[in-house]
Design a protein around this nucleic acid. Structure first.
Lengths: 296, 296
DNA sequence: TTGCTCCTCACGTCACGTGAGGTGGC
DNA sequence: TTGCTCCTCACGTCACGTGAGGTGGC
């Protein structure tokens, strides 16, 4: 009359490993309704599929088996509701966490991909690869300086930096890391440098007035508009002739620069072993559009 | 000149346990740039906060430390992009999985909560608690039969059941579980019974023509409308005098019943230890609304 | 005898966490 | 001497996974 399932059948129907079922039995979390008195075989009833599937969901949510077991001993509806309510809240938090992780690695990816295009000397605008016959756009290339349109870009501004004579940027950077938590800065987002204006940058390129976090949910924005863009290879704070090239281009094209200067590392230690190949992008607003020039 | 961080400082700035940092050092995943030759103290550079934060994100996504280490040895942008692309895909799948888990426990919760209200004899309509002076609604109570409006409710229909003489419902139920995967049925959702019509139910209440899964993304629907609702306590398939009570009420109120009969267990082994207290709800459509009756 | 399913028991694995016992400078 | 930070080494933990060696019925 009664139908029982062997551990193999029960494992298949529930999609739970036999070794897991044996372990759950061993720790007293979930046991078969019957054991063969002769050979000690485990026999499960089909009813048990309901319960084991519920346990499977909870354990897949990383609820400790002890917690599941506690809720299971003497069961009542109120107890189960409390357990589910807790798990719903945890699930909400976990999904929030995963969304942030996604945002972190995605932001990182976009920077790296843009860096790859720069290194390849592709014609690109805002990370969109353009074919060489595209007219509307300008060369984005390691050795070129150019004016490009940029969408707005959120960030979080860190505390004001204070550099002492002959001190490396590490001290202010550590200070930034130290206070990151209070400022709701997640240090896993890419970090950039921020000079208040072009004069500050030209004066001490390797001493940004602040550090910024490239958090897409940031409370500040680099506004959409036209920016003077240039790149350089080298370790943090090593800009070589970049300031000279930047200003030469601005003068030649009669550009007035305005607003803060952003220094963003597209390639850093996360994707490169050799520090001398780190790739930085400088980005500063232009007051008016330059006259249309023909590219040749 | 150079500034180094002790393991304690580095742990605080990065929000990673010291024991974890030592472990990552031990397995060669992430080591301090320097060791004190005297006492073997670990010294980290502030730069390393960038890398360790990236590793932290990946490890929090359950990427095996071996995989992280492999991508870390000789780094290049393309390799990191591949790693990130993989993780983005995994993250999408994981979030999909969590949404389904949420849906599973939430569906379960709603049934259990409704069951609690029925057991408490609350005046309720569709799981919303009503105060006793509410007019528009009817008694939902373990011992009452009532006509209630129900929103539509999706489900997945399992294969047709075949009962043999004297065979328990376990065999068809096992068949349902066996083929669940092919039918894209996740057995963690509550399972219900389905009789094609009221005659089939009255004939063999404990032998549903099909089993159904209460999956909110199901391809079928119990349409919105008025349903005759009743409850009973007892193990699966034990309906007691419920069919009699149901038909007596229908006759008394001159109701025509139409469409399939749904038997849903609001309380089952998941929230009760004692099978005799399992709570089932019967739900069958009514052809026309009964005449307005005064409740007394 | 062979093949199959089941069993128990012991040990391995992954990513740490936890102490015990010791050092080294103020 | 006391307190503090750091070290290594060994063992524990969680939820299994993986054999080794054995049984029992066709």
């Amino acid at each position: 009359m009664e139908k029982y399932l062997s551990i193999n059948e029960f494992s298949k129907f529930s999609d739970i490993e036999k070794s897991t079922l044996r372990y759950w039995d061993e720790i007293g979390l979930f046991s078969p309704v019957k054991r063969d008195p002769e050979n000690n075989y485990r026999y499960y009833s089909p009813d048990q599929l309901i319960m084991v599937n519920f346990i499977k969901v909870l354990s897949s949510l990383n609820v400790p088996l002890k917690t599941i077991g506690d809720a299971q001993g003497i069961r009542n509806p109120e107890k189960i509701i409390r357990l589910i309510d807790q798990q719903e809240k945890k699930l909400d938090m976990e999904m929030q966490r995963l969304r942030e992780c996604y945002s972190i690695i995605h932001t990182r990816k976009e920077l790296i991909n843009y860096g790859i295009k720069v290194m390849d000397g592709y014609r690109a605008v805002d990370g969109v690869r353009m074919d060489s016959n595209v007219r509307d756009g300008e060369l984005v290339d390691l050795n070129k300086v150019a004016v490009l349109y940029r969408e707005d870009s959120p960030f979080i501004l860190g505390p004001r930096n204070h550099f002492k004579e002959n001190e490396s940027f590490h001290i202010p950077f550590m200070n930034f890391c130290k206070h990151a938590d209070e400022l709701r800065i997640n240090l896993s987002f890419p970090v950039g440098g921020y000079h208040e204006n072009i004069e500050s940058f030209l004066n001490k390129p390797s001493e940004p007035d602040n550090f910024i976090s490239m958090d897409p949910t940031g409370n500040r924005k680099r506004e959409a508009g036209y920016y003077l863009i240039a790149f350089n290879l080298g370790y943090y704070g090593k800009f070589g002739d970049l300031p000279k090239r930047l200003m030469a281009y601005a003068e030649e094209n009669n550009l007035k620069l305005k607003g803060p200067v952003f220094t963003i590392y597209l390639h850093d230690e996360i994707c490169l072993t050799d520090p001398s190949r780190y790739l930085v992008q400088i980005c500063v607003g232009v007051e008016k559009l330059p006259k249309k020039r023909s590219i040749n």
